[in-house]
Amino acid sequence: MKEQDLKKMLRFIFILGSLAMLLVISMIVGTMLIQQHPEWLHALKENHSSKNNISNQQENEPNEEVEWTPEALEAVGLVEGEGLQLVLTHCTNCHSAKLITQNRFTKEGWIQVIRWMQATQGLWELGDAEAEIVTYLSKHFAPEARGRRIPLEVEWYDL
């Protein structure tokens, strides 16, 4: 083998080795970053998909769209609107929709409820979905000011 050929081969091996090293380093750094910022992965996935599927961060986190008929939605008091599908994906897998539709909060209030569920009830990080969910909830289930007693709702009948 000529010396030039040997040099060529060595250079080739060196370049290949460097590329492999770079690849390994970027994978390690990437993994570390994604572990610290799991929401990046969600954002990435959402950009690639028109569906709002979110990666499995915890075992019980849902990853499929839930089919609800208009009648089923009406029965539990949910209304159509932007963010509904995310609510069905993230909220009603664990508890009934009735727990949502009974309650009334401002944006801040709904965020507090989400934080409480995350701290004590095993709710996962909602990532980018959170803003849309909170907007939906605070728009359709906002508190209405009322007096110190609620009015009686009366159905009259003959005693």
């Binding site: 409480w116 508190p143 000011a145």
Partner: peptide
């Protein structure tokens, strides 16, 4: 609970 204002979280 259903009569508190501002509303509080839980079954009403």
């Amino acid at each position: 609970r259903g009569e508190f204002y501002p509303p509080t979280e839980g079954n009403q």
